[in-house]
Design a protein around this nucleic acid. Sequence first.
RNA 1: GCCGAGGUAGCCUAGCUGGUUGGGGCGGCAGACUCAUAAUCUGCAGGUCGCGGGUUCAAAUCCCGCCCUCGGCACCA
Length: 648
Amino acid sequence: MKLVTCGLPYANGKLHIGHLRTYVPADVYVRFLRMAGEKVVFICGSDCHGTPIVVNAEKEGVKPQELVDKYHDHFQRVFKALSINFDFFGKTTENYHHERTREFVKKLAENGYIYKKEIELAYCEKCNRFLPDRYVEGICPYCKTPARGDECDQGCGRHLEPGEILDPKCKICGSKAVFRKQTHYFFNLSAFQEFLREYLSKLSGTENALNYAREWVGNLRDWCITRNLEWGVRFPLDESLVLYVWVDAPIGYISFTERATDEWKKIWLEGKAEIVHFIGLDIAYHHCIFWPAMLKGANYSLPSAIVASGMVKIEGKTFSKSRGYVVWVEDEYLKSGFNPDYLRYYIVNYTSHDKDLNFSWDVFRDKVNNEVIATLGNFLFRILSFAWKNFGKVQMEVDGEILAEIEKAKDKILNSIRKWEFKTASDAVMELASFGNVYFQNSKAWELLKSDRARAMKAVANCLQIAKALVILCYPIMPKSMEKVAEAMGLKLSSCSLDDVLKVDEVVELKKPELPFKKIESEDIEPLKRVLLSRFSGRTSSEVTLEDFKKLDLRVGKVVSAERVEGSKKLMKLLVDIGEENRQIVAGIAENYSPEELNGKLVVVLANLKPARLMGVESRGMILAADVDGKPVLLVPDREVKPGERIK
RNA sequence: GCCGAGGUAGCCUAGCUGGUUGGGGCGGCAGACUCAUAAUCUGCAGGUCGCGGGUUCAAAUCCCGCCCUCGGCACCA
């Protein structure tokens, strides 16, 4: 028995193609294994707790539960449309999940892995509450950059434990926060170092995740697992606290399994099943470090494989919701009326599972038209309609070499799937379709029809066997489309196994076949490309008034001196003559400009930008530059201009 | 900075436990065919396998150095 899970989607936003990179291959994996006769439980669910959901709900003026329910419904709708069929899709706000989580945490405590510690936490006296996680802004104690309460998100990127941040301010009201002592609870992660090292050396999965984890395991710190928040699972040892969202979320794998099957104990307590987690690389840390340690500490079974998908790029650009490099599954893909199977194929076939996948509408159109339709769809349709038109019923007599070819494809596909090599598997399907096309072409059945009907029928029988194999082998990848084709040849796919590809029926009776796929015309993707382009160019949707613009003190400046900021690869410290003074400005251009070439250069300066400290260096202003694929290109005046001239 | 992945024809990509002429796909060009959604089939053109050394009878494949790209560096999807 196998349990297959997918990383839980976080219920504060809609699904985009990046999410599908995990869910589609997992679904394909499960479908193949089932057709190979394996018993598989496949579960997932919405991750509903945590600060961002509370903040977003506040912003939208709804209760967290309403927000969560909205996205939960959205997830289920999209998964259904894409034929991603979980046995159970749960929600971490449900009672059963809270109960399982509390039981789990109690067990951790009983086993001595939770301890309490007094820490200094930021408290806002105006809002009258402690400021957890992202409610607090301040300065990173390591690199002195402005940072969020839980992470130095602009500077060194370090994780900040609660209370570590310097000069904290309340993000809600902006007032200065004070430190107050507060008792919180920690998970003794460092006690698991040796266990994890050993465990990770045996853990199966994709190399990308395992390599990271092996690096991380050398530097483990205990983990604060409670928060001052109302929204979440109550911490059993102190009901005034709530568990950190990353504690309860993975426990969803257990609580959802409980709902999916009454054999859950075999899986999670008795170690009688393989547990395979499909995740995005971004959450490898949680699944390779925190999660096994938690399971070990609470006497549960351990995962046998972590399968991490690579990143998704959009039109060659690094995926970024804020920059607009994103494709929304429901609003953009599905609403445009494309066959969901096309997207499944694209995701599975573009490249290896652990490499970056580039989503481009042009490539999408080409892959669908050339591979799915011209190679696979065309073979299926040409042979089915040829057989139907000329014979109606076909006496099945299949050559050994045809069966051998089919068996070769089947073996290659199944072996690849077991190794999470979805591209190799789907390529093998296309190769078999291509083989079918060559075979039929060479048979010249349409000529034989006039001279030797019996031989023509033999050729058709061989092709029908190939078609049957294709429909079965492709079913896990493009289920809806294959069901349609199978119907025309009287095949019930839902009850087929992979071995059926080699079973030869006595007679095949054809129905009139329909075109299995609709081509993608360039006009179909033009609007989608335009949507992306308009977002790429970074246009802000709201208009500004001239008054708004006048608030900006833009002027020409002349670089007086430039030097790199020590310890930083991006930052350059500049002294810029802006007319009445020489201004110190820190700019992130050191990777693309040298101090020498900057010296004496005329630049455009935003002079009244709120001062900031970057890497401990004060910056009062900003140098304007074009963002060309993430690299700055400085804006310079067309002619020699006096420093200080206003820009209108 | 440290760590990881990668640099193969216009584009994508296989090969990388060293060994017959570096495979495949897209795009391009030329034919063939008409059962098929101008689909299919055959053939052709196109490569200093990032750069420089080294090991070897033999290197895209192993070793060393360098350059470039992308990603990770703990709660950001």
